[in-house]
């Protein structure tokens, strides 16, 4: 089958790729070097392949690459951060020891990114609910939940500081 043209915004930059019609977004991203997007179960269960599409978290194994035509896709490679720094969510995961083997981490971080944009001051229950589609076999989740709370606090300080500085 001939390859098909795909045009979308990846991590803030427009890209033009050629993909197979039946390629999942997961496959297309990894084949183009975005290896933070992890291939876990490929059945929509583990959440390791989670990316943010137009502000919504999506499991990229359940999205066909051609479905993102004209859309905006964000992976951990594209998280906005100051030069030499991590994004506050990434930093919170490091600080709280929420990373052990690290395989699930990019997925958790992207789910958290979309979640905190919509819910800047979440309760523990809301965090657990939001992360219910991401599996971690190492941490036991508690450090991840702490990291999300810390990230929420850091992001709200950041936006408070930005508003104060205007």
């Amino acid at each position: 089958m001939p390859k098909r043209a795909l045009s979308f915004v990846l991590n803030g930059e427009r890209v033009e790729w050629e993909v197979e019609a039946s390629d999942t977004l997961l496959r297309a991203l990894r084949e183009n070097g975005l290896t933070s997007v992890k291939r876990g179960c490929e059945e929509g269960e583990c959440g390791a392949c989670t990316v943010v599409i137009d502000d919504e978290a999506q499991k990229s194994c359940l999205v066909l690459a051609l479905e993102v035509e004209g859309k905006s896709v964000l992976t951990t490679e594209g998280l906005p951060a100051a030069p030499g720094k991590l994004h506050p969510i990434q930093q919170a995961f490091v600080d709280e020891g929420a990373v052990q083997c690290g395989f699930c981490t990019p997925g958790f971080i992207m789910t958290t990114y979309a979640f905190l944009k919509a819910h800047p001051n979440p309760t523990d229950e809301e965090i657990r609910h939001a992360l219910s589609g991401n599996l971690c076999r190492c941490t036991g989740y508690l450090s991840i939940i702490k990291a999300v709370k810390a990230a929420a606090a850091a992001l709200s300080n950041q936006s408070g500081a930005a508003e104060g500085g205007r």
């Binding site: 959440g47 919504e56 978290a57 999506q58 499991k59 359940l62 939001a130 219910s132 589609g133 991401n134």
Partner: peptide, 9 residues
């Protein structure tokens, strides 16, 4: 149904 992320799709 499924989880909070899959329900976006």
């Amino acid at each position: 149904h499924s989880d909070a992320v899959v329900r976006n799709k």
